[in-house]
């Protein structure tokens, strides 16, 4: 943890009654990073985010948001923070534009003289300008989500906190959110994005934190997290047993035969050495695959698979 973290928590804990929803987490989101905050539904992500934004008071522990202590000085930090918290929420009988006007009017740091222009720019950036005059209640789920993102774009931000930004979006909308995150990151904005669907954020994240049952079970750069799971080599051949023996001799671990050949964890063994050894031994290799683990694999390995809702 360094002073340059955009978000830093220490021993952050929240109990509702006897239930510990967030359990002593030390979150560190470096400035300029795109931090993927992952975990199954009910793992404590949203409660953590609510605490970061001053909506929920921690039971224990401390938070620094852009260097300001929260709770206490959130009013100083939040003008530089854009947030999408647990889905969009607006006044249904106001239009999209009117809803943005209301939130901009509530902001003591925004300039009333430029409000109309900033609002239209934000609507344009999320592609809602044609629907600006429509009542919010007539918006589709995807449009509602975009409007919530437009709120965060009204004034320049140092940090964007996006809680499940792709919920309810079609694949096209999901891609748009991803490219928006990428463009924010390019502008130097720190992005904290939570998701239970790892594949949606994997490509844009520089850092990852994984929550499970209220605990932050791992945190680091995306590369560090991937290293948790070792690279696997798979060889397709008509001589599986022979190949497996060779792989063991080379020092691969967890070697097993597969229907079309053999597979094992590479560890420190360079893949090219395996290929060379196979050729040297005269094996007929039809296919050689080096399989780097996806974050999905890491995620599943850390949090388990299936529909269990933790907590």
């Amino acid at each position: 943890m360094t002073a340059s973290d955009a978000v830093r928590t220490s021993g952050l804990t929240k109990r509702f009654g006897s239930q510990t929803v967030v359990d002593a987490i030390d979150l560190a989101v470096p400035r300029g990073s795109v931090y993927g905050f992952l975990g199954p539904n009910g793992s404590g992500k949203t409660t953590t985010i609510r605490m970061l934004l001053g909506l929920v008071t921690p039971t224990l522990g401390s938070i620094e948001l852009l260097g300001w202590p929260v709770p206490g000085r959130e009013v100083d930090a939040l003008p530089r923070v854009g947030a999408l918290v647990e889905g969009p929420a607006f006044h249904p009988y106001l239009s999209g534009r009117e809803n943005l006007h209301r939130l901009d009017a509530a902001d003591r740091t925004s300039d009333p003289a430029t409000a109309a222009r900033r609002i239209d720019e934000a609507l344009d950036r999320v592609g809602l300008l044609p629907a600006a005059r429509k009542r919010y209640r007539a918006y589709s789920l995807g449009m509602r989500q975009r409007l919530a993102i437009a709120v965060a774009l009204l004034t320049p931000k140092d940090l964007m906190v996006l809680d499940e930004p792709t919920n309810g979006l079609d694949p096209q909308g999901t891609r748009e959110v991803r490219s928006l995150i990428a463009s924010l990151a390019t502008d130097g904005t720190t992005v904290l994005v939570s998701s239970h669907l790892l594949s949606e954020v994997e490509q844009v994240c520089t850092h990852i934190g994984v929550m499970h049952a209220g605990r932050l079970i791992t945190q680091g750069t995306a590369a560090e997290i991937r290293r948790h799971q070792e690279t696997e080599a798979r060889i397709e051949t008509d001589q599986p047993d022979h190949t497996a023996r060779l792989m063991r001799e080379l020092g691969l671990r967890d070697v097993r035969t597969t229907p079309h050949g053999a597979a094992g964890r590479l560890g420190d063994v360079p893949p090219e050495k395996v290929v060379a050894a196979c050729v040297h031994a005269g094996l007929s290799v039809t296919r050689f695959i080096v399989d780097a683990p996806t974050l999905e694999d890491v995620f599943v390995a850390l949090t388990g698979e299936g529909f269990d809702v933790s907590g």
């Binding site: 009017a105 740091t109 925004s110 009333p112």
Partner: peptide
Amino acid sequence: SAAELSATAAVPARRPSPRFLASELRL
């Protein structure tokens, strides 16, 4: 403290304006 040194400068609030109240009354 180091933490305060690293804090993002607070965006200055503009002079009190009736915008929010006007918005509330419109609502």
